[in-house]
Design a protein around this nucleic acid. Sequence first.
DNA 1: ATAAATGCAAAGCATTTGCAACCAT
DNA 2: ATGGTTGCAAATGCTTTGCATTTAT
Lengths: 136, 136
Amino acid sequence: MKPKGFVRRTRQREVILEVLRGTKSHPTADWVYQEVRKEMPQVSLGTIYRNLKTLSEHGEIQELAFGSTHSRFDANKDMHYHFVCEQCGMIEDLDIPPVEGLDDQVEQLGFKVTSHRLEFYGSCPKCAEESMGKAN
Amino acid sequence: MKPKGFVRRTRQREVILEVLRGTKSHPTADWVYQEVRKEMPQVSLGTIYRNLKTLSEHGEIQELAFGSTHSRFDANKDMHYHFVCEQCGMIEDLDIPPVEGLDDQVEQLGFKVTSHRLEFYGSCPKCAEESMGKAN
DNA sequence: ATAAATGCAAAGCATTTGCAACCAT
DNA sequence: ATGGTTGCAAATGCTTTGCATTTAT
């Protein structure tokens, strides 16, 4: 007997995952849509959304809800932190090690922790430099 | 000469801030709306949104975008972290000290850091216990 | 007096969903 | 053959906005 809710391997799903794995830009659903369209002009936005949801439910990608209205997606499954530039909007992976013992600290308060998420806000190197230049 | 963009003190704004300060529940805009309506039945949702925006721009409150589509708001201005229960959806302030030196670490990578945000995901004490009981 | 703020209703816009056709298994 | 998946379009639902009016200063 086949498992209920079995996930099929479709061309759309493949391309979406490919696109996501081929960028470090933490794209929005619409950006993914535009990219996938280059290879499958007939693909629909609904399919993009359905697949992004499926993929993140199955742990293939990560959904990131930052301050803005729309979600962004990340195919990097390793634990890592993000930096959000408040000037240019760019989101970058940070190359710093996961903080040790953080989850334990919270578990001692009675919570069962499955993950944590850490984001930094400010100006990226480029924008910070530009502000300097303008002597703003 | 009065400053441009001066912020007036209105009854609506006062009540909204009052409501926000009177709860620890990180409410949504709509929840705030319902509460404010109890005192000002004629208030409009637009006013709630405009004020929440103004208030957070002026640092009176904090806007929190969690995984879901809609924002939540927090009148607690002190640096603190949050726990999001993936079972009941509850969001709770965490009583753990801010991690030292985190911002410095990121600044050394060339970023200018103004703040960071840390959230834990999992089960709150209540939900965790219930899962145990069900021997799930 | 003057511009900020409000209420109301009409957009806006990202995301979701119903449905018939389609296709991976 | 079966039911997960798709494209399409309509629908949701949170949030924003235009505008005439009110109101804080």
